[in-house]
Design a protein around this nucleic acid. Sequence first.
DNA 1: CTAACGGTTCGAGCCGGATCGAACCGTCGA
DNA 2: TCGACGGTTCGATCCGGCTCGAACCGTTAG
Lengths: 226, 226
Amino acid sequence: MSIGPSITRIAAAIGDPVRAEMLAALMGGRALTATELANCAGITKQTGSSHLRKLLDAGLITVRSQGRHRYFGIANEDVAHLLEQMIGVADKTARLRTGPKEPALRKARVCYDHLAGEIAVDIYDRLLRNELICFVGESLTLTAEGARWMARFGIDVERLRSQRRALCRACLDWSERRNHLAGALGAAFLERLLERGWVRRERNSRLITIRPAGEIGLKRVLGSPR
Amino acid sequence: MSIGPSITRIAAAIGDPVRAEMLAALMGGRALTATELANCAGITKQTGSSHLRKLLDAGLITVRSQGRHRYFGIANEDVAHLLEQMIGVADKTARLRTGPKEPALRKARVCYDHLAGEIAVDIYDRLLRNELICFVGESLTLTAEGARWMARFGIDVERLRSQRRALCRACLDWSERRNHLAGALGAAFLERLLERGWVRRERNSRLITIRPAGEIGLKRVLGSPR
DNA sequence: CTAACGGTTCGAGCCGGATCGAACCGTCGA
DNA sequence: TCGACGGTTCGATCCGGCTCGAACCGTTAG
């Protein structure tokens, strides 16, 4: 009758150092192969394979077989969000003893498939202030003006709407404790920033760096932050 | 450099059947003693004591000593929210193999210190529709009319405002996948519902049942749902 | 003061699961 | 066709941590 066992399944799956490391690597948004994941966790591929099976059983990741490779990735947005929340709680309770670390990650990072961190919160604020997105009741929606804006920015909004996935979602940022943009639009927005060369993702990491062109460009299309 | 270890700390602390059961019991919102928690997890108090220390070390729970008793409770709203999210993910991945369980919990339950479930989402919608709460930018706020309404309902809003805790917060309901009211106001609202005898909490459970007076009363003060 | 009770600490036992070597399967390239 | 490579399975080993009995400390009640 109790809900204890159900959360044990999930938490125990995450709560192993090796598996946590694998999930952290996958939070970078890139699909990785079994060997890559084993390497970045510092174990042999046999052991890695067993861990990956556990993560699959728990429903936390998915696989896509491609030739002789198997690409693993975070299962869905809910799992990604759960992991972000967990980092938030961990960070908050650890701060007391260790002190803040990784300020660069606070500035900008990938959260599964969209942008997170200080920059992401700033962008979200400006989208809201310019009435390109707004709350209708409790759900975040793209305004008509917002749709035109996104089209000018190079995003095919109609294609996104046809996906089963929600177009806009507000996602609580653990480092900023404020919302940023998620959902299909959030993912497309990040993709476009990368294509334009406004931001760059670091190799094998969740870290995102903003390039000068991005600083200038964002200011031009969205106005100054604050 | 990686964030793996930090989430391991948290997830491993939750990912033990006994500790998960304890946390689930504490999600009922009541502070419980070490022996009570040991009993509801089905272990001896020595073992329980060790588990409780681990949960304390992880920062997931807090203690308050009172005479020869020690009362344990969920550390804060973030932890409660994390656990709810985890239930949501667990539920979603398990549904495929087990099927939905506990429909009563979906109807109404306690989420740490405020109301959750179908009823809570309904109430939230009606508060929003009547413009008693609204989004200002991204943060949920109580309107002037809402403050008067709450006062009539028997809630001392000024006292709540003076707390360090946020007055209104939107909390994503795992069973409904829509928002409900959290924060100091959410807690006070539930308290008032209990005082009025509109709802009742089941002993040793997160379950909340709506009494006839509550059905009628809520309809009178907030209008019909939908 | 003493007994009862709530809670923690210590120590020993035990079990689950993480780990890796070795063998095996399937795909790709030559 | 054969060898190289990515990945999984099996089996043996080993270690961490969960568990409880026993002893101990502090508080409360009589």
